[in-house]
Design a protein around this nucleic acid. Structure first.
Lengths: 329, 329
DNA sequence: GGAGAGTGTGAAATCCTTTGCGGAGGGTTG
DNA sequence: CAACCCTCCGCAAAGGATTTCACACTCTCC
């Protein structure tokens, strides 16, 4: 059915060994032979069977990618970056969506591990212990989470919060609410840490609300508490929550940003599309994906050098319509 | 390194052949032996190397999935459905994002074809001819597009449009604009077809605007033309365009739905989150993904029976805040 | 002209699993 | 007791590509 190395060998009048060399280590083959083989291969539209190659080389040419929920607009951006970079490097990508289930996550790593050279774990929800366990199984790169010395790409959440708070205090806000994401979330903890630092540095006052589910409804639910707290600005754990806040504030007839400023985190595409558009701390999602693949590939090449590399990517505040001067009391 | 069938064989005191049979065709092995083998396999945490198995059986246990753009919120929904169903059937999924490039699409099919048992093509952008070409290479199921007798899952766009128009005319609208998506898009053509039928049946008037890119900016760009056309309602090719319309209308101070009603297509998650929330024709994205995998797996089992199966999924109008009674002239 | 170095190629082993074939052993039947 | 049948299991081949090893050949130099 499919064209194999033998077909090419026959067509070029050489042995399979020579075909293999002509294609993968051309310098070992006489120019004339090499060209003949390459021509035959092209004519027959031959490409080596990756499974067979993997069997002997021990490398599959595949990467695994595990995400908690593609429905969360944060992830498609990261996935696209991973996709693109992997394809450039001639790797194929296995995708698995866990539906936010930590158990499924561990299970999937185990299943995938045998079919891939390494796995990119996007915002993994499983425990540190489990994470270390699966990292022993196969090369792993963490995205948006840091655990011990495991290779990881993260965002500078602390600085992002600094930018957010600086922006708000410059606008005169002194009492600021934070709608927290899940307690178990690493990035939520980091954001809270950065927030407290920045608030303290600015001499402002922080009111913490939540935690809530990092979904639209979480924001909707938090809005009334935020209003009750009598703040002039609110920072949400992420954009989706912020959108929920905006929606509920609108329903209650509260003007944004005249009466209250709203600030999100992530800069999902949607944030620029709503009205008022959402001021938010932008994370370089695509770069994160690319950097993750780069790190993983480096790690496969040279485990010693990259085995515990961690990179932190910068963030950028996107000032839009949902933040404005604090109302004069 | 990894545990192979030989390790299990040694542990159980049998030959590799017996291990294989005990695990894949248990009825051919004596109960006692079978249990011993299964126990050893479990103890060693053995699972067969899929590449090696694929080499001999000709089946990889993998599916390919090609989408134009994960950033378009329509696709993650479909992908999740595919994901979930494939995992249930013990298939792994290769994902590729083409960034809306028809050439990359064809190229990716060719590359993936050798590593998978079949491919799900999501809203393919390539020409009919190319599509037939790649369908000859490997089993293929089309999602959201129909070409000849190729297996496909589609939505009933015509009926969706009927629902939309019925809704608007019931509200008293008589002059309705349509903001068209790309001319090359199959679903756009279908929607236009359904639209014309429904408009004619209702004795209303249709003004076609565009085509525009199926993105937020496309909607923004189309909004002024829509207003200039003096209509009381506008249907957009999809939700993202509709959101662009809403945004621009808001900027121009036009009240929705008091002055003009806006209606989208797809029911992406975002549609319920904006203000006013978007009335839209909902497509069962997840079901579409699941149905696609079901069809593909059926096709792999029994090509004759499923070789040209096509299914059309129903749609459901979601009435929300962006549509209301036509302003009395 | 023959030894030695160097280059280019093929044969064969290997990766791991599946499967057709056949052998061994036990049981049944005439 | 012989012939036969069944059941259960092992041997060996197959699948496609890579890689080691060794062979054959050319060229150089003494």
């Amino acid at each position: 059915m499919a064209v194999t190395i033998k077909d090419v060998a026959r067509a070029a009048g050489v042995s399979p060994s020579t075909v293999c060399r002509a294609l993968s280590t051309p310098e070992l083959v006489r120019a004339e032979t090499r060209e003949r083989v390459q021509r035959s291969a092209a004519e027959l539209d031959y490409s080596p069977n990756r499974a067979a190659r993997g069997l002997i080389t021990g490398r599959t040419g595949n990467l695994g990618l595990i995400v908690p929920d593609l429905g969360n607009p944060f992830f498609p951006g990261v996935v696209k970056g991973i996709q693109a970079r992997a394809r450039e490097a001639d790797y194929a990508v296995f995708l698995a969506d866990t539906d936010e289930d930590p158990a499924a996550e561990a299970q999937l790593v185990r299943t995938l591990a045998k079919q891939v050279d390494g796995i990119v774990l996007c915002s993994p929800r499983m425990s540190e212990q489990e994470l270390r366990g699966v990292a022993a199984l196969t090369p792993v790169v963490l995205l948006n989470r840091r655990v011990g010395r495991l290779p990881a790409i993260t965002f500078d959440n602390v600085d992002g919060m600094r930018q957010a708070v600086t922006h708000l205090t410059a606008l005169g806000h002194r009492r600021i609410a934070y709608v927290a994401g899940p307690r178990a979330s690493w990035s939520n903890r980091e954001r809270v840490r950065g927030l407290r630092l920045a608030i303290a540095a600015a001499g402002a006052e922080l009111i913490e609300v939540g935690p809530v589910q990092p979904q639209f409804d979480g924001g909707v639910a938090a809005a009334d508490q935020v209003l009750a707290a009598g703040v002039t600005a609110v920072i949400a754990y992420n954009d989706v929550i912020a959108l929920g806040l905006l929606s509920r504030l609108n329903v209650r007839g509260i003007a944004v940003p005249a009466a209250i400023s709203v600030l999100g985190f992530d800069d999902i595409a949607l944030s620029a599309m709503v009205h008022p558009s959402l001021t938010t701390v932008g994370l370089p999602m695509k770069s994160c994906g690319r950097a993750g693949v780069d790190l993983l590939l480096g790690l496969l090449q040279d485990p010693d050098r990259f085995g515990s590399t961690r990179r932190e990517l910068g963030t950028q505040l996107m000032v839009r319509g949902s933040t404005g001067p604090a109302p004069s009391a």
